[in-house]
Amino acid sequence: MIIVEDIHKSFGDTEVLKGISTCFDKGKTNLIIGQSGSGKTVFLKCLLGLHRPEQGKIVYNDRAYADMDEDQRTELRQEMGMVFQGSALFDSMTVIENVMFPLRMFSKLSKNEMAERASIVLERVNLVDANNKLPSEISGGMQKRVAIARAIVNKPKYLFCDEPNSGLDPKTAIVIDNLIHEITQEYNITTIINTHDMNSVMEIGEKIVFLKDGYKEWEGTNKEIFKTDNEAVTNFVYSSDLFKKVRDTYLKEGN
């Protein structure tokens, strides 16, 4: 579980996050949504410890980030897995080497045990026969699977994903969404996804936090988002006719 209390973050004179408080539950797929420039990425980077908020508190399972020393922060980071928007796979390493990387860095497993663990994880993300390929030799969807495999290989407690299905075709995007959702439940981890994709919101958003201009405008579940009358949320989520129709049908049928 991650608890966020009143965090503020500025860059120069621009205040990007203006006092956000929320809570992300364990074993749930939590989504952060909002327009471009609303502060989603900065918020995610604060949760990852890549940006330090000037004010406020982030608590990871009863451990406040601000109270930790450098060694404790390093330990905490080893409990985190991250899927970057562009996958961020290491170009010079093969698929299996990328997945084994966190194990090579931090585990005491033998080389065979690491390879075995990496293969199991790759199989879990439905990626077989690509072990010895370089990231440049596989498709965007496959790169995302490798990034997910790398993020979960060290059995993290927290999984962060920055727009995991951007640049993917709709079918592959749904597959990636479902994969992350399944892994969240299977490994019982706290997953936080930063997304623009309304399919993800409808399909896997067990908790949704909507940001607007650096504030938390709304939060709720994917069921509640159909019923909300918050204008900012409805303008953003139901900006396309298709989603308006989906919402109308949902409300008419009552489920």
């Binding site: 980071r77 080893q78 970057f84 961020a88």
Partner: peptide
């Protein structure tokens, strides 16, 4: 390509 961020997130 965020590979440095990936290293930092892993605690490297």
């Amino acid at each position: 390509t965020e590979q440095i961020d990936a290293l930092e997130v892993m605690g490297v």
